[in-house]
Each structure stands twice: as structure tokens, then as C-alpha cells.
Design a protein around this nucleic acid. Sequence first.
DNA 1: ACCTGAACACCGTTCAAGT
DNA 2: ACCTGAACACCGTTCAAGT
Lengths: 182, 182
Amino acid sequence: MVAAALDLVVSEGPSALTMRRLAGQLGVTTTTIYWHVGSRDELITEVVRLQSILQATRKVTARTPRTRVMAAARHIWDAALENRAITSLAHQTGTTSILELPLEEALLRELHAAGLSPARADDALRAILATVGGFLLNALRDESSIPPEQRRPSTELPRLFDKSVQAVIDAFLSSPTRSGES
Amino acid sequence: MVAAALDLVVSEGPSALTMRRLAGQLGVTTTTIYWHVGSRDELITEVVRLQSILQATRKVTARTPRTRVMAAARHIWDAALENRAITSLAHQTGTTSILELPLEEALLRELHAAGLSPARADDALRAILATVGGFLLNALRDESSIPPEQRRPSTELPRLFDKSVQAVIDAFLSSPTRSGES
DNA sequence: ACCTGAACACCGTTCAAGT
DNA sequence: ACCTGAACACCGTTCAAGT
């Protein structure tokens, strides 16, 4: 049933996931869904959780700590862009952290492996995730709001993503201090 | 009328802005609203545009180019946090760029003043905005989804914001090249 | 244990009709 | 020019009732 809901989102978009449409797809009544799941929010949480498992199978193959951290960050970016519909759904419903949890844990492990203390790794994780999330917002917005096929920065955005995320990573990998004057 | 809509959003949250509730607030029928404005989306656009004008009166007083760029970036952050309700509304409806347009233009001017070519300033603007937006997402999510009053990072997030945004700014102020190996 | 029908309280939007 | 009443096509959710 949550698999059917996931299919609905993937094939017809996040807004297609209504109780009535899902019920129609399954050949039952809307009230039937409420017997299996408590509410629409719970349904969405389950859909997002299912997708988070499906997309967690990415391996970091880079060799240096710095490139491994960057690779883990890019996995989050790649997974989100490969599954735009569910990413948008999670984003709209505030369940992004559930969707990315496995990939976030992988990133956190790389930060620990890079020699950061737990507290500093948490800070770095938070900062990197915020930066990645910001670029994701940018990338996903440009497809939904701009109707025609003339998307200016489709080739440039990944370059800006790399440069910016790398800068944030380096800031947290190197200095334990506050950002000072130049 | 759009002023009344803005008041509604500020006092009762983004979800309170429905045609029926706004009509009730104004003492008219929902259909009356449709005479003045084409649709709910147009209404929201006007509300966001109004707020964008109200919050555009911030001056950059820092002295060096680097600190002036940072100050312009922090203005976007500050304005968003001071007007959480409309920021969330704009975010949900994909009108964030309208809301921040004046502040974005101010940031772009600082990037030009810092000596960047138009093309490089556009790249830097995009990257900085994405990073700021990511932290904003983070800050606004922690208040809506976490019900109780125990918000862990309310004092730490600004520190991470400063450090990360500064790192991105420095990356684009200094090097015109791709992000290379260390 | 699992499913249905009917209903409640909402939405955005339209259209003919009033002044 | 400006406003209303009634209606359409949707929502999420609940509750008594069926098997």
C-alpha cells in the first residue's frame, strides 16, 4: 500500500497523493486506508521512509578523507535529483531528514573518519547538509516553476555546488575556531 | 486587501490564508476577492511583493568589500527570520525570489563593488543565495516541526551560518577557477 | 480483522444575477 | 464597477455499520 502510494507520487507528482486517488488506484474506499494507516501524514512518512531505504545503497569509493566527505555529500545531492518527486514530497511535508537519514549517517561517518571530534563532526554535518539542501532547493525549484525548456543553469549549477560545498567542507575540516577576519 | 491578507499570515500563520477566512476578515464573500485578484496564487504573490518592499530598507555599513558582502548576505538571513510567517509562505509557494529580490540586488551590487565581473558575480550570487537558503530552511524547520521548547541549536546555528557563508563568499571572491585538489 | 456508505468541515473557483 | 448566492469539484477525517 505504501508502495502504491510511492508509485503514485513518482508517476503523477506529489500533489497526486490524496486519500481518494490512492483509494481509487487500489480499488478500495478512502476509509479503508485509514484502517491501515492513521492519517495522511503517517502515510507520507511511510512513503518517505520506504524511499530512504531504497536510495541508501551508495558506496563511497574515494580515497582521501577530503574527497570521501565530498563524495558522501554528493550522494545526497545525486539521490535527491534522481528521485525528484519524493524529494519534493519530503521537502513539502518536513520529512527531509527521514528521507536522507541513511545518507546523512554515511556522511557523518566520513567526518568522523576524517578526524573530527563528535561535536565538531555534528557542526560540520549540519553546515554541509544546510548547504546541500540550499542547492537542492535551487535545482528543484527551477524545474517546477519555470514551465518551458529553457533552463539557464542546468549545466552550471553542479559546478557551483561543487565549489561551494567544497568550501564549506574545507572550512570545517581545517579550522576548529570561529570564522575570523582575513 | 493584500494588507489584510498579510496581517492574516503574520498573526495566524501561512495556512490561515484561505479565500474564505480572508473574506470573513474583510466582511465580504469569497467571490468578492476574485473580482479584485485573479486567484489565490496572485493574492499570495501580491502579499509577498508587499512584504519584499517593507523589508528592503536595510543598509550595509561595513567597510571592506568582504565584510560588506557578508553583511548583505546576513541581511537576507535577518529579514527572513524577522518575518518568519511570510518567509514560510513564500517558500511554500515558490515565490522566495520575489520576497528577497531587493535584498538580492543589494548583495549583487556588493559583489560587483568587490571587483567581480558580471558573470562571476552572478555565480557568486547564486551560490551565496543557495547557502543562505539552506540555513534558512534549517532554522525555520526547527521551529515548526519540533513542538516543545527544547530547540538544541538555537544559539549554534548563527555561528555555523557565519562560518559556512563566509567560506562560500571567500571561495568566490578569490578564485575564478574550478575547485581543485588541495 | 478488514472494509463500506454517509456525513462533516473544510478547500479554490466559476457563473449567473443583483445594485 | 463592485458584490452576492448557489453550485461544482475537490480535500482529510470520522463513525456507525456491515462481513
